[in-house]
Amino acid sequence: MREAPAKAPILVANAGSSSLKIRIFDSSGATLFTGVAAEIGGTSQLVLRGQSRTAALADHAGALSALLDAARADGFDPATLGAAAHRVVHGGPDLTASCELTPDVLARARAAAALAPLHNPPALAVIAAIGRAWPNLRQVACFDTAFHATIPEIGWRYALPDLPETRGIRRYGFHGLSYASLAARLPSASGVQLPRRLLAAHLGNGASLCAILDGRSAATTMGYSPLGGLTMGTRTGEIDGNAVLDLARRVGIERAAQILNRESGLKGLGGASDMRVLERAETAKATFALDHFVHWAVHHAGAMIADMGGCDAVVFTGGIGENSARVRAGILDGLAYMGLAYDAENNAAGARRLDRPGSPIMALIHPADEESWIAEEARRLISHAA
């Protein structure tokens, strides 16, 4: 017999363009099962309990089936699920909060797929696969763009004419689930009240900054797509529109997209997209790539701070933000004009302070955990609607 939805386990699915990660949480928030399918459609891998093995995974529906089979083998019965919750990268201009997947919401999410062609279709494929397997299971979508719905129009609108051809081309912002989780959880994790003017840095293979003013997004560095803003693992970050047009004329649109999204950033400058590899390499190219990452993070931080009218705290999250003391030190050194005194010896992750006592600006680390936040959002929605 299925448990009441508010108490039953929740499956969280995080679908990438060629990957799928699932986590199953019980009602207390503890993880019951974790599994990852990678390189879907190619030389696929299943990663379970830290061990990887090859698998034939033609598409995301097949990957979901394989992961659920692994969950069964691990002793979990998917029939006991109370809901499934999904990270959907793009909600478009209309879906600005997490919501239960009704037919209308699903239609809007499909319409937004054109704005995130690498990410929304896989999420929608997983949603459809779960719907076929359990037609009565409630499903929730949590949108990476939703947290940035509070950015004022003057901040999200490009200076484009209002034409049919330009509609929908605007700044949306991403990493919203990470920032929403951070804003909600930082006070209890750090023991300090949420700073009024918080500069949040989600630094990983994808990287962005967010100006969080009074707990709400006031500005962010990513724009129409996750390509804009900071130097990233394989993405260029900020680049002039005419340079993009010129590159597309030279090599074609598809090849230009490949270069801009998958061959640039740290990989293009230093030969590797992994910051850990670059830090170990200590070659001139690797050092330049690392310095480029830091420089443009500091550069864009100035704009975020200006949009808030100052800064009371800086918080780092994401794989690089949590684990690279060298990057954190470089960024904080670049922000030293604000009076921040950085304590290089205090580098442990876990909502820890990095600044010295008496510094007018706090610096903290906060671990990212988007999946558990998605589970919380889903449970809130289901409990409220019950």
Rank of each mutant, 00 (worst) to 15 (best):
A8D: 04
V244S: 00
Y158Q: 01
A189Q: 11
I305S: 02
H202N: 07
R353S: 13
L115A: 06
A6S: 13
G350S: 04
T221L: 00
H292D: 12
E3N: 15
G330Q: 06
I331H: 06
I259E: 00
A123Y: 01
L247S: 01
G334E: 06
L198G: 07
R53A: 11
L163K: 05
R23T: 14
I130F: 14
R352P: 04
S181G: 10
Y337L: 11
E254N: 06
L354K: 05
A218L: 13
A183K: 06
W156V: 09
Q51N: 14
G271Q: 05
L199K: 01
A114P: 08
N261C: 02
D240G: 09
R276W: 07
A4S: 15
Y342E: 07
A123H: 00
F174V: 05
S372F: 08
I10R: 09
N14R: 04
P103E: 10
P117K: 02
F316L: 06
I40V: 12
H86F: 15
A85C: 11
S188Q: 14
R53F: 09
G75T: 05
R379I: 08
K285E: 14
G215L: 08
A297G: 05
E165I: 04
W156N: 08
P360W: 10
I130L: 15
N323S: 08
V105H: 14
V314A: 04
G309Q: 04
R23F: 13
E238G: 06
L290W: 04
E345H: 11
E3P: 15
A201Q: 08
A248E: 05
A13I: 09
G206S: 03
G131R: 04
D59T: 07
D94H: 13
A348P: 11
D59N: 15
R2E: 13
L364P: 04
A107E: 12
S52G: 15
D333G: 11
C210A: 09
D274N: 14
V314L: 11
T145L: 03
A73W: 05
L203W: 02
K7H: 14
A37V: 06
L230V: 02
S217Y: 02
S383R: 15
S359Y: 10
R132P: 09
R280C: 13
N120G: 02
S65Y: 09
L340N: 03
R108D: 10
E3L: 15
A378I: 11
V88H: 02
L177H: 01
E371P: 12
Q258Y: 00
M1I: 15
L48E: 10
A351S: 10
Y224V: 05
T220D: 03
S225H: 01
G92D: 03
R170N: 06
G91D: 01
M222T: 00
A109M: 11
A58F: 10
L106C: 10
L32S: 14
M338K: 12
R53L: 09
F174S: 02
G35Q: 10
L182V: 05
V36D: 13
G318Y: 01
G358C: 07
I305T: 04
G252C: 10
A30K: 15
G319N: 02
A256P: 00
L245C: 06
V277L: 08
I382E: 06
I10C: 13
L203R: 03
V277M: 10
F76I: 07
W156A: 08
N242I: 13
R110V: 14
G309H: 03
R250C: 12
F33P: 06
L32G: 13
E100W: 12
R185H: 09
L160Y: 00
S383N: 15
V126K: 05
H295D: 10
L245F: 01
